[in-house]
Design a binder for these strands. Sequence first.
DNA 1: CCACCTTTGTGAAAGTATTCACAAACCAAC
DNA 2: GTTGGTTTGTGAATACTTTCACAAAGGTGG
Lengths: 217, 217
Amino acid sequence: MSGRIPDSTVRRLSLYLRMLRELGRTNREFVSSHELAGRAGATSAQVRKDLSLFGSFGKRGRGYSVGSLSNTLEEILGLVRTWKVGLVGVGKIGTALLGYRDLDARGFDIVAAFDVDAAKIGKQVFGLTVSPLSDLERIVKECGVEIGIVATPPEVAAEVAKSLGDVGVGAILNFAPTELQVSDCVAVRAVDIVLELEGLSYLLATARRLDASKTDE
Amino acid sequence: MSGRIPDSTVRRLSLYLRMLRELGRTNREFVSSHELAGRAGATSAQVRKDLSLFGSFGKRGRGYSVGSLSNTLEEILGLVRTWKVGLVGVGKIGTALLGYRDLDARGFDIVAAFDVDAAKIGKQVFGLTVSPLSDLERIVKECGVEIGIVATPPEVAAEVAKSLGDVGVGAILNFAPTELQVSDCVAVRAVDIVLELEGLSYLLATARRLDASKTDE
DNA sequence: CCACCTTTGTGAAAGTATTCACAAACCAAC
DNA sequence: GTTGGTTTGTGAATACTTTCACAAAGGTGG
């Protein structure tokens, strides 16, 4: 059944789950692959193939049970439990994340925050006390942190990521605009705002270049 | 030369550019595809193929000129100019973005910020006055906003995105955890923190499932 | 029970992206 | 100039993803 699952499939599973939860709130009982596809920006065949990688969850002629498919996807994505998250770097983005109640609501509980800035250490930020970076190892172990968020300036991001990996954190979400080189038993995902904006810039620039050459003709 | 360029290629071009700028700061003159690949998490063949989609910029036996390849990539990505950005939603993430000096430094200039919250309207946030959402159309046109950032709660994100598209904004960066359905002459990229965390959750959960089944044997 | 409509699950086909592998080009040194 | 060591640019081969298309299954109503 489940061999290697493409990253793109996992992303879509999250989207499907999000829609299923919405549908659940409206007390809908069944949903077709076609409808799920519509709002997730996928095709119905893609929805069915994605799900079929894990098993068969639908009823032919009816579609998928909203409730039970939600549960199945939560199980697959590992969302039936709460993950303990450690945040490194309590700057602007770090602070925003600490205040982002959605993370908690979705099962990601920030249990520790770290910074090097003496002015921040000891302060409470959205109910959490900022610890000195030097206590990272001790606190990560004590609290059982499982996911690390790197929200430091790029210069120190690689070093911080390495420390996190060394202390046994298995997954890192990286907000710093740097490639992290970590042992490959640590999973890394990057949120790179400038990269995304540059992608948009490329598309806009290309559109203009096309426009310009069209006007020339 | 340049047909349809894969999204993955554009992303890598940004990474290459980032590395080239670093190398430029150390006064390096030439760099090989192999070295560029190393730090961008790609292969040397991939670097060469990516670049070859746009032309031939290297010198055989020497590699690529750091300075001139930087310029070429900036040109391709549309980074030789400053883009005017409008931010909708001055909550925690929106505020963090307004304070994120890197955006400015990279050619993305936030020239307007909008919110519906009367308590925020008129206030200065990092040197920018927050405008009422009802003035979106007028101000976007006046300021010539080209890229919109949606950092609102998910319930209103779709509506805001539609307004932005209608007023002529050609590209949107979406921080709300919702799929935006916009006319396809508007480019959209999403930054979805919960989605990324769920991806990590999947990997951690899968790793544990494997561990558990191994111990069982 | 049968005819008809709907929707799944899935091999096979088509389409994309990545990797391989090597000729062509460049440089340096002698 | 010729030899030898590098490195690009690129067709061909491989690997991966998505789409197609249809048999099998379930529901409904007579």
